[in-house]
């Protein structure tokens, strides 16, 4: 891909993304948000975030030959419990990453 095509792509992506972000904000009043969409929006964070999280936690990383990546799954459960009980994102992240690194480095030692 030459430089012109590359920059053309970047600019096209930039415009398209800006249009997606501003569409309803700019169109407010001219085209209104249907009531069903308004109701649906309150479930957007829960469903989109879960859809982003679940495959990364449950499915093994690309190129891995294991069926379930247990350290990642357990680390996510620990992070979720931390988030539930302490409502603190940094604690959950540290607990999740800490337990993942501990399991990845210590489990092979235990198992042999």
């Amino acid at each position: 891909m030459n430089d012109l095509t590359l920059w053309g792509l970047f600019v096209a992506v930039g415009i398209a993304t800006l249009v997606l972000r501003l569409a309803f904000i700019e169109g407010h009043g001219r085209w209104s948000v249907p009531p069903l969409l308004q109701r649906a929006l309150q479930y957007v964070p829960a469903s989109v975030l879960a859809a982003l999280v679940a495959p990364a936690v449950v499915l093994p990383p690309a190129g891995s030959d294991v069926l379930v990546d247990w350290p990642r799954l357990l680390a996510a459960v620990i992070a979720a419990l931390m988030a539930w009980f302490f409502r603190n994102t940094l604690y959950s992240l540290l607990a999740g990453m800490g337990s993942l690194l501990a399991m990845q480095n210590l489990l092979p030692l235990w198992i042999g």
């Binding site: 964070p45 982003l52 936690v57 539930w84 999740g96």
Partner: peptide, 20 residues
């Protein structure tokens, strides 16, 4: 080996849980 890629889903998870 630092598995830094996993910090992204974890941070989404940390926002997701209070949203439920």
């Amino acid at each position: 080996s630092w598995s830094l890629d996993f910090a992204i889903p974890l941070s989404f998870l940390a926002i997701l849980v209070p949203a439920i």
